[in-house]
Simulated scan of single mutants.
Amino acid sequence: MNIRFEGKRALVTGAGRGIGRLIIKKLAECGAECVAMSKTQENLDSLRNEVPGIQTVVVDLADWTATRHALEKIGKIDLLVNNAGIMIMSPFLETTKEDLDKVLDVNFKAAFNVSQIVARSMVERGNGGAIVNVSSVASRTAFMNMASYCSSKGAMDSLTQVMATELGPHKIRVNSVHPHLVPLTDMGISIIASLPLVVIESCRLRIPLLNRLPDVEDVANAVVFLLSDQASNLNGIALPIEGGFEAN
């Protein structure tokens, strides 16, 4: 399967590190003109050194107005990946409004905000497009001390379904990917450090496919596929990337 994106412009949020960084690299390899969005200039500078020719945008996605201003300067986008996300771990009874707001602002409201601006432009141009929201198995599986994160991803799943329904008639496909814990990312490392080893091991052993947690490559490959014309009839799906975790 030869996936190519020549003539397409792609925007990836949270592109400075981890999953988003690899998605940008793969999209560029496939011929897309890429726009990488992150709140950290240093990460974008190093990414530009690795992927010359990409456009970089520094913005804190938690700032609704600043994000909209930044998007107005980007120009047309054909492919969008809402990847930016944060996690603040705390027991449900101890989660503060401030922490809940921080998580929802980045994980849900930012995806809503960015998608609204990009999709409106797609509709106006009339050429269609593709959007992938990076969700998580945590949207459908309860994990201890992750009430705010699980809730934010559940909200993103509902948003994906509504977007797919409303935007489909405009030839805009909207799907989501649901990775399990990805160990070699900043968030994955943080989760592993904060939970007892027995909990991490029990999750891993519940995965039928060789008891293997996904890696960054697994997630990036799935996102690129869903953005491509090879997935032209896929709309509103939630693609699990967890080796059969939910099936077991």
Rank of each mutant, 00 (worst) to 15 (best):
I3S: 06
R4K: 15
K8A: 03
K8E: 12
R9H: 14
A10M: 06
A10K: 06
I24D: 02
K25E: 15
G31Y: 08
A32M: 11
N43T: 14
L44M: 11
S46M: 04
E50Y: 10
T56G: 13
V59F: 04
W64Y: 15
W64Q: 14
I77C: 04
D78T: 06
L80A: 07
N83A: 10
M87V: 13
T96F: 09
K102F: 11
D105T: 01
K109D: 04
A110K: 01
Q116L: 10
V118F: 08
S121K: 12
M122A: 02
E124C: 08
G126C: 03
N127M: 09
I131M: 10
I131N: 07
V132M: 04
N133A: 11
N133E: 06
S135V: 07
R140P: 00
F143L: 07
A147H: 07
S148M: 11
S152R: 02
T160R: 14
E166Q: 04
H170T: 00
N175M: 03
N175L: 07
S176K: 00
V177M: 03
H178W: 11
H178P: 05
P179F: 00
P183H: 02
P196Y: 00
L197N: 14
P214Y: 00
F225N: 03
F225P: 02
L226G: 01
D229R: 13
N235P: 06
A238E: 13
A238K: 14
P240V: 05
E242Y: 02
